[in-house]
Amino acid sequence: MSEVISSADFQSKVLEAPGKVLVDFFATWCGPCRMLAPVLDEVAAENAAVKVYKVDIDQSPDVAARYGVTSVPTLVVFVDGQVVNQTVGAQPKQNILALLNA
């Protein structure tokens, strides 16, 4: 399963990380988040060049608020710490890959 990171880790693991990082803002009680989880795990397993992390919005509301998250799951793609793409809702693998490739 993709690693859940805290607000404290966000700076080093996402904002200061070189290359592509996909962040899944999720909640433990959110059904669609559970539906998305194995799809993200597959994407992570098959694409070593992309780091995939999860942010629990209840544990890290500050990070969620910073990115204007008002729906879970929200996926945000960072390249060299900059937001380049984002989407909401559970989606199949080809959509996630398209989001990463855009």
């Binding site: 669609p32 998250v69 729906s71 879970v72 929200t74």
Partner: peptide, 17 residues
Amino acid sequence: LRGRGVSYCATCDGNFF
């Protein structure tokens, strides 16, 4: 506006409001 105030899942997104 999905994720910006439009939602199809109250139990998922209600807390933000």
